[in-house]
Design a protein around this nucleic acid. Sequence first.
DNA 1: TTGTACGCGTTATCAC
DNA 2: GTGATAACGCGTACAA
Lengths: 351, 351
Amino acid sequence: MDADSSLQPRGTRKRRKMQRVTMMDVAKLAAVSPSTVSLYLRKPAAVSPAAGQEIARAISTLGYVPNLVAGGLAAASSKVVSIIVPSIRNAFFAETVSTLQSELATEGLQVLLGHSEYGEDQEEALVRTALSWAPAAVVLTGLSHSTETRKLLQASGVPVVEMWELGARPIDMAVGFSHPQVGASAARHLLSKNRRSLTFIGARMQEDHRAAKRASGFAETARAGEILSCEVINHPGAATVEAGSLLLNRALQQIPKLDGIACSNDLIALGALFECQRQGITVPDDIALVGFGDLDFSASCIPSLTTIRPSGDLIGKEVARLILSSIHGERPEGDARIIDTGHVLIERRST
Amino acid sequence: MDADSSLQPRGTRKRRKMQRVTMMDVAKLAAVSPSTVSLYLRKPAAVSPAAGQEIARAISTLGYVPNLVAGGLAAASSKVVSIIVPSIRNAFFAETVSTLQSELATEGLQVLLGHSEYGEDQEEALVRTALSWAPAAVVLTGLSHSTETRKLLQASGVPVVEMWELGARPIDMAVGFSHPQVGASAARHLLSKNRRSLTFIGARMQEDHRAAKRASGFAETARAGEILSCEVINHPGAATVEAGSLLLNRALQQIPKLDGIACSNDLIALGALFECQRQGITVPDDIALVGFGDLDFSASCIPSLTTIRPSGDLIGKEVARLILSSIHGERPEGDARIIDTGHVLIERRST
DNA sequence: TTGTACGCGTTATCAC
DNA sequence: GTGATAACGCGTACAA
């Protein structure tokens, strides 16, 4: 018959992996059937108090930890949410992922993390492996994905949330804001300060489509105003403070009478700020500076940085909400599936 | 595309989960047995080229994605590595996690992320759920854990790597450096610059034991030198730029003739720098400043920041190496299980 | 309320 | 090299 009908407590050193305490062990010790334990675990109120007591005690004395792998197989949907961001080093996404992780953890959901590094092929590969975990949901960054990615996701039937961008039609659900509008806000603000020679400096815009959209939204609005010039300058590398310094210098060379700058990111703005200081350029008297992100130094630097806050934690919260309601409740319909978290321009000293 | 003429197309409103293409489907289409497909997937060289061809084609025409949940159950060890850090918002850990994710992804391992928020109980809960995934390895931050956490981990037999700290005996393997030594380096550097009224300013040190150890290492070394005074000042909140400004002010109040400061973190150093600028204090003439972390602004700020680089990406790489070798090769023995990534003091203008 | 039986999709051990 | 077959640990109708 079966080899393990006899209780073989310990000593199986064949395998070094020993998730030995199973639900059945708990059931035996509590003198109930495994299914009662299973039921107790999911709906404690559905079993008799007496049995519940016994089971609870058995669990704690055995140190039982449910095997989510087996559970996921049986339930055909595991308690994982796969999150794919360009890079977790980016403070924006770190904030969102952090919030998301906390919110999901309260419901017993785990976060599976992947980095696309702004590559659609990378993303596709990540989505593929993500799906092989039969995740409870998949969270993607932005709306630009390979057609294969969309197909995979749609075919899987898994709830999908695209975050940090709104505009085109999402695969399933979306939480974010319009990047062109962010650019437009920056432009309007600079125009309202009577700046006439404008530039948008950004990094990695050949890959970071959202930054590119902020740039084009900026340029479009600026050019509709009364200005002398408006340029967009890109640094192909990562968005760092140093890139900001480089970009400021390029802007100074290229643009005569430069007096207004929007940055794709507060880090770049900080670099520009430092470079201005080095060159004896006064902010905002000579040049006004608008950032993006409201990172934690933005309020404290000198001068403090006018910036646009995208609310990365709010995005995280809303994504979590969508996921949760789409898991146990019904999936939201229509407009409820697209959430605009907006953006806020915070005026400080740099303008 | 077409080719999807299976039995029940879609539109089944009942269940939305449909991981329909299984290994058996592939086997049927390739006219081999499921076992052969499984074998091919794990050791392609072990099946005949002819069969391999057929299987490969079947896989791509069906768009088969292996179900890792089922695989994990059968193999009793899933292809996930659980990583638990205090917070992913912290640039240090973001860097490590990012590196780790990339390295592990090349071997088909996924990252399951959790935040302990510097709480041992939180960490314990995370470890518990992590283990329920039968992970290939668990990565923890630091060496301080609840005894229950250690017990769980040891009993599980899963490879464990503790990172970002060295000193006490690790549960299994460890990659990091000595925090007291970092503090000592900062102190020696300040002493070598003839600073005599020293202070260590840090945030959240009641929870962040590593920062606290840097502080005590600093104090110990400083007090062994010829100094007038040495204080440690803590801000209970998070380590932000703003906290740095607050801390600088507290230090100025408390310490007469203050002329040397070490910070638990570059963000705090930056805040201190800004505050000095606001108060007309010249760095390094009036006060010398040493940071920790070498964050990306540290080289660019004004004055550039002398700091200590802990090499978060190197830690990530080494952790990955340990995990991989401990998965397919044998587990390293003895000293090879503890890797000191050291620290480097980078002297810049702020001292 | 509780127990029985079966299946989830894969891996691993053998015979062939 | 290849293919039956038995687990893997749990969810879930159903039956009791």
